[in-house]
Structures are given as structure tokens and as C-alpha cells.
Design a protein around this nucleic acid. Structure first.
Lengths: 145, 145
DNA sequence: AGGATTTAAGAGTATTTTATCCTAAATATA
DNA sequence: TATATTTAGGATAAAATACTCTTAAATCCT
């Protein structure tokens, strides 16, 4: 459901939020360090981060001591914001069977079932913030970031 | 979430179920007709159908008056059966952030939220049969098959 | 000013998914 | 038996996605 680019980006954003105790506008974290610590590809991650920077979720800074940092508090960045920037909202807008014109008025055979689930998934991603995610890191002993 | 191959296959299976009034072991329906009626690629559909035949969801027959037909009643074929054959169960088994080792005991930061949704989606696909899907065709006026 | 560090941007490559084509095999029917 | 019909299976092509590389630009530090 989420692209590889989106999975990486969410993990990385949670990681940045975790590193920045105050939450945002802390020191910049280098993309190299993030990729290394999370076991992700530096090339792929930095490419994907460019979108998050353009979208105003991240601020970047070049040169020594440069890197990226959050532009908002972790409590103000929702997972859906990241999904929207990296993957777009097609998943939440499109019919599960691929019909262009599927809608409540003009449903496909499983529209009613799926529309409900899709709405719940949307709710989940839009009600979960980076802060919620990092809370689980403290709450559970072995949480993977 | 579902691949194009899987969307096509589900639509086609619903269409076959709808055509076969008794439900299964009726006359064979040619793949050409299915593809034409649903606006799908004949080549792509027949390729994907090969998997459904091997998996025992469809029976095929070559030659004139040949085609495919259901091997079970529409009430006995669940959407999840089709998904499993075409796309596999990775979606339902894998961590949404891509962690190999993510589990209830060893969760990622959003494991608890996602595991619940994923389970509900699984429920939806495993409790919906072809018969349920075709019921909606009669129930709603403009349903898309 | 010069060199080291770090992201930006675009080009390039690889892999996967989607889609098509061709030939063979099966089989109904004339 | 010959022919037309229809799926099977392998090969290929195109498109989308994933991933890498190279060079440029910014900026810190000495």
C-alpha cells in the first residue's frame, strides 16, 4: 500500500522527531546519519527528502553541520502529511477495483465495504502524528524505528 | 494496494459469477468476451487467469465453446482467495513500515494502529464472497461490474 | 580565500509490474 | 479428417518504480 519511498520517509521523519527533543528547529541532522542509523539508502532517502523539503515539512541546510530538521512540532506533523507528499492521495480517492467513476451514487460491487475501510485507514493516518509514534518508542521496550 | 492484475481478476470473477445463474459448472465463458465486456486487456486477463486455473478457482476448457467457469459456487469463493492467488498475502503479513521482524512482541512505532486496520481489511476480504458482490448489482441501480 | 562538508538537481541504471505477441496444444463441429 | 476456436506458455516490450551516480551550489571553518 505504501511505496518504498514512503515507508523510508515515515521512518526517517519519526527518527528525526525522536532525535530532536524539543521537537523542531533544533540542530540539523545529516541525511547521511539518518540513512546509516536506519539502514536506508542515502541516495534514495535524500532524493525523497527533497519532496518533503519542498512541501514544507522539512527544512534543509547545506554545508558542514547541515542536514534537515522539522519545520513543525512532531505533534503537528501527521503521517498522512508525509503520505500525501510522497505517494499522493490516489489510494484514498480511488476505487479499489479501479473504476474512474465509482462513488457513493455510482458504486462498484464492493464500494460500500471498501469506502468504509478506506475512510478508517485515512482516519488512522490523519490522527497519528510523529509525536504519537515516538511515544510508542518509550512505551514499548523493543520498538523498531 | 491491489495490483492491476488483481483488480482485473476480481472484476472478472464477479462478472463470471454474475453470468452463471446457477453459480458454477455452467457453460464456459470465453476470456475474450469477458475482456471485451469489462473493457480489459484480453492478453493481460488470460495471463492472470492462468494462475486462478492452477489454484483451482477456475476451470478452463480449450476449443470452440471453451473458456473458463467457476469451480465452486459464488458463495464459496471469497475475494481474499483471489487476492491470495494473484497478489499473495504479503500485504496482510508484512509490516507497514517494511520491518522484517515487526510483530506484536516486537512492534514498530505504528504497529498497534496498523495491525488492527490490516486485520479489519483482511476480515472484509475474507467475509465477502462473489455472491455478496453480485447481490449488490441487483440492489443498487447503477453498480459497476 | 580555500578546502571540507552537505544538500539539490538531474541524469542514468536496475528491477518489477504491466501488457503484448506468437506458437503450440486441445477440442468442437462440420 | 480438416478447420476454426480457444486457452497455455514462453518470449518480448513498455512503463512504472526503485535505486545510484555525478556535478553543482551552499556554507562552515581555518
Amino acid at each position: 500500500m505504501l511505496s518504498a519511498a514512503c515507508k523510508d520517509s515515515i521512518r526517517a521523519m519519526i527518527y528525526i522527531a525522536k532525535l530532536q527533543k524539543e521537537g523542531y528547529r533544533e540542530k540539523f541532522v545529516s541525511i547521511h546519519k539518518i540513512a546509516k542509523d536506519l539502514g536506508l539508502s542515502f541516495y534514495f532517502l535524500s532524493k525523497n527528502f527533497q519532496k518533503l523539503v519542498k512541501a514544507g515539512l522539512l527544512e534543509s541546510h547545506r554545508g558542514p553541520q547541515g542536514g534537515v530538521r522539522l519545520l513543525k512540532r512532531p505533534s503537528e506533523i501527521r503521517l498522512i502529511d508525509i503520505v500525501e507528499v510522497i505517494d499522493g492521495m490516489e489510494f484514498f480517492n480511488n476505487c479499489i477495483l479501479g473504476f474512474e467513476e465509482c462513488s457513493d451514487q455510482n458504486p462498484c460491487t464492493i464500494h460500500n465495504l471498501w469506502a468504509e475501510k478506506r475512510e478508517e485507514i485515512y482516519s488512522m493516518f490523519s490522527s497519528t502524528t510523529l509525536e504519537d509514534a515516538i511515544k510508542n518508542i518509550d512505551k514499548f521496550s523493543n520498538v523498531k524505528v
